[in-house]
Amino acid sequence: MVYLKNIFVVAFLGIALFFSACNNGGNNVEEQIDDSINEEEMVSDDLDKAKQVFYSLPSPIETAMLMKRAGAKYNEEFLNNIANLPNYTTTKSMALNLGVFSADLSFASMFDQSQASVKYLTATKKLAENLGILNAVEQSTVKRMEGNVNNRDSLMEIISETLMNSNSFLKENDRAEVAALILAGGWIEGLYIATKIAKSTAENKELVNRIVDQRLSLKTLNSLLEEYKTDENIKAVYEDLKKISDLYDQVEVSTSKIEMVEAKGESTTLKSKTDIQITDKVFNEICTTVDKLRNNITK
């Protein structure tokens, strides 16, 4: 009887606490008064805790689309070899290469490479599982992809879902630094593929512009990594990326003020002009530095 009573007490406490957590109403004002917190202090506290910051990087899907629209051609040699998968046994190498394979998967899908897409989705699934990310890629998703290999919209939807499952799982489980490493790996692979394609394409002005555009997202990536710089894995990646940031600092970019143009029933256009001046020397150094960094990650 005492045993049953104890279970009842625990269950009651659990239910009470659960509902208090789920209650969107949260903070009871009377309790705040009981805590003798005066109104001014409360306002000040609210302001202090108010501003959270998110750093959102371009997803691998977006990078792949930008490259395709810039005139890139598919070349599987530029992607990481699936045979390297067993080499990734540390958290750092698994997370970075999960990002790399996500970028490769997006790239293959964007160019309608069905066999390669399924192959890279399977590699992504394996690495996500090894990192303890539950249900990032379900077996049913692989089957869905196999059944939709000729439908790019469906493939992109599947990849988008897979990315969201991974980074939401990691953030919810207080492993945001692993999510940051995955994003860093994807960003590096995207830039690596872009530089490889630009180097092998005669008319590459748009690709070069896209590579220079990455200076903007690199700033966001650096800000994201700075939040976790006490983590040794993050610190190492941050320092490697600093070399690329220093090279981007040598590119001269001027952008005019943005002018908004709204047209009824259409999306708003943010009009502005950008002038980019990059020397061959700096461009080649960016390509070489990215090449070295990426090959160090995937070896």
Partner: peptide, 16 residues
């Protein structure tokens, strides 16, 4: 909660 603010930094690309 009411009154709270969050900021998101993101690069958006031309032509998209």
């Amino acid at each position: 909660s009411e009154g709270e603010t969050v900021e998101l930094f993101k690069t958006f690309y031309s032509g998209q």
